[in-house]
């Protein structure tokens, strides 16, 4: 049977699908991709349902090989360094991984997450209807944990992909993290008007200690108008809570289902990935938009993913000399597949 073999995986590399929905009322976190748009783009490029299981690649990096047969792959990132047997490829690429070849993904100058989709279905058993990994509660993915060297992911209904690597053209993934759009509330009334203004204007610096659960911001602390403890209520992905120290915490995919700090605003769905991709040290501010604006942005995202992801053959002029030297290996794909 065709399988994807994990040769090495850095910390925080997990299997994710569209998320574990329907159980928030029982305290079950949805998990799912940190950058939903990039995850969906990888699946679209691989010809899969948009919420299919992918490997979410952290800045810890990933090395994989194929076993049992050639396997079509879409690896989508922004600025990650992707190589096939050492030869550089574009940061968003579709290719066929032949057994014996090694695909490596390493962190780059920007971006925090990339998504590897296979052409076929990564065949792991869903838990509560989803394969999304939530490591804190040990649910989903492979035994509820991150991927590690030696793991073997069986691929059901595998399909070979492009004969030679193709650059994926997804301009909607070119997103500037400097301004993040939010809808104010649900507890913006816990802050005076000047504090709302200070929150929006920032500037805030993304702390390096963020993870799949939360993004921490450093900057001038905000003050609360009526205390910082509320009776716990529901928490949406992107909710920005302000604890006693006045520094905002943005709750992300692995957040708890409820929380007890006032939430000054909520990052709109289309900007969650933009925020998630901000590496530590990134400076950002917020812009308040209406629900209608946010829905319009969502609609535009959905429309971008309606059609197949455009692609161009990888041409030699794109690459450095080490790649040119290795091109005979890439050209060999056609011979090997015959």
């Amino acid at each position: 049977m065709t399988a994807l073999v994990i040769e090495s995986a850095g910390p925080g590399v997990t299997l994710q699908d569209g998320g574990r929905h329907g159980y928030l009322r029982y305290g079950i976190t949805a998990a799912g991709p940190m950058d939903p748009l990039m995850h969906a783009t990888a699946n679209r490029a691989a010809g899969n349902p948009l919420d299919a299981t992918t490997i979410e690649v952290s800045t810890g990096g990933l090395t994989v090989t194929a076993e049992g047969g050639p396997l079509g792959i879409a690896m989508v990132s922004r600025s990650f360094r992707i190589t096939l047997d050492g030869a550089a490829l574009p940061d968003a690429v579709a290719l066929t991984l032949e057994p014996g070849r090694t695909l490596t993904v390493r962190a780059g100058a920007s971006g925090a997450w990339g998504y590897l989709a296979v052409q076929g279905r990564i065949d792991v058993a869903p838990v509560l209807g989803s394969t999304a990994t939530h490591t804190r509660s040990g649910l989903g993915g492979l035994d509820g944990r991150g991927l590690a060297a030696g793991d073997r992911l069986p691929v059901a209904e595998p399909r070979a992909g492009e004969v030679s690597p193709h650059r994926l053209i997804a301009p909607w993934l070119v997103r500037n993290p400097e301004t993040i759009r939010v809808v104010l509330g649900p507890q913006d009334d816990y802050f005076a008007a000047d504090q709302i203004d200070a929150f929006l204007a920032g500037p805030w610096t993304v702390s390096p200690r963020g993870d799949r659960m939360a993004c921490f911001l450093d900057g001038a602390p905000l003050t609360h108008a009526k205390g910082h403890d509320i009776v716990s209520d529901g928490v949406a992905m992107g909710a920005i809570q302000v604890p006693g120290n006045g520094l905002p915490i943005i709750l992300m995919a692995d957040r708890q289902s409820t929380g007890g700090y006032p939430k000054i605003a909520t990052v709109i769905g289309p900007d969650l990935g933009r925020l998630a991709q901000a590496q530590g040290g990134t400076r950002l501010s917020f812009r308040s938009v209406t629900v209608a604006d946010a829905v319009a942005a969502r609609r535009a995202e959905r429309d971008a993913l309606r059609e197949p992801v455009p692609r161009d053959p990888v041409v030699r002029t794109d690459f450095a000399s080490d790649f040119l030297l290795a091109l005979n290996l890439v050209d060999g794909v056609t011979d090997g597949g015959a």
Partner: peptide, 18 residues
């Protein structure tokens, strides 16, 4: 309507706005 999350004092409704 995707999820209903009752808490002590509120009901959160997650929905697909499209």
């Amino acid at each position: 309507l995707r999820e209903r999350v009752p808490t002590y004092r509120s009901l959160m409704l997650h929905y697909d706005p499209l």
